[in-house]
């Protein structure tokens, strides 16, 4: 019963709660849903031991672009812990060297920065950063997770090969609800 009740109250809160005026053009609900997903990803993805300095090091989440989303995500993960780890949210700006990005455990690339998607994917090669995109084709082109909208539901794609290369362990629960995509092959449009 409790298990059922909690999400209900939250949903009710979202329905009746205050409007979030922070964002400009994006409807709040999409941000909240994505923030909820990212928290779940943090729970259901296993990083290699090298990903964290100490057992209680925070999970570093970077948001490239779109400060409004960063505000929502920041609010959502504030004070939360997963297996003893807290969260640290970084708002990032695009830079070619990508040093900040490589230091993140999770990097969300908002659609406003989609022009840099390929470069970000290249920068993150060889790191264990969970890249999360928000533009069509992101996972297919080497990103790990990508949000997609299907009939007004937010769903996500996973590129398992990219996850494997990043040495990330994706839980079967995540895989079971994801759309699995394969990296694009040459000549494939």
């Amino acid at each position: 019963m409790r298990r059922v009740l909690t999400p209900i109250i939250i949903i009710a809160a979202l329905i009746l709660g205050p409007e979030v005026h922070a964002q400009k053009s994006t409807d709040a609900s999409e941000y909240f849903i994505k923030a909820g997903y990212i928290y779940n990803f943090a729970k259901l993805v296993g990083w290699p031991a090298t990903g964290f300095a100490k057992p209680d090091s925070p999970i570093v989440i970077g948001v490239l672009g779109d400060d409004s989303f960063a505000a929502v995500l920041g609010g959502a993960i504030d004070g939360k812990k997963i297996e003893g780890r807290g969260f640290l949210l970084k708002r990032l700006r695009w830079s070619k060297d990508g040093k900040d990005m490589k230091e993140c455990n999770i990097l969300f690339i908002s659609s406003s920065e989609a022009a840099h998607n390929d470069e970000v994917i290249q920068i993150l090669k060889g790191t264990s950063t969970l890249s999360i995109g928000d533009t069509a084709g992101f996972a297919k082109r080497g990103g790990i997770i990508n949000f997609v909208l299907e009939d007004s539901n937010v769903r996500f794609e996973i590129n398992l090969e990219s996850a494997k290369q990043a040495d990330l362990n994706i839980s079967s629960r995540l895989i079971s609800v994801a759309k699995i995509v394969k990296p694009e092959s040459h000549g494939d449009r």
Partner: peptide
Amino acid sequence: PDVTAISLEDLMNLKVTSV
């Protein structure tokens, strides 16, 4: 709202009414 308490499965079914 505490979105972190929503399960993955419930997130899947939430609908963005104004996309």
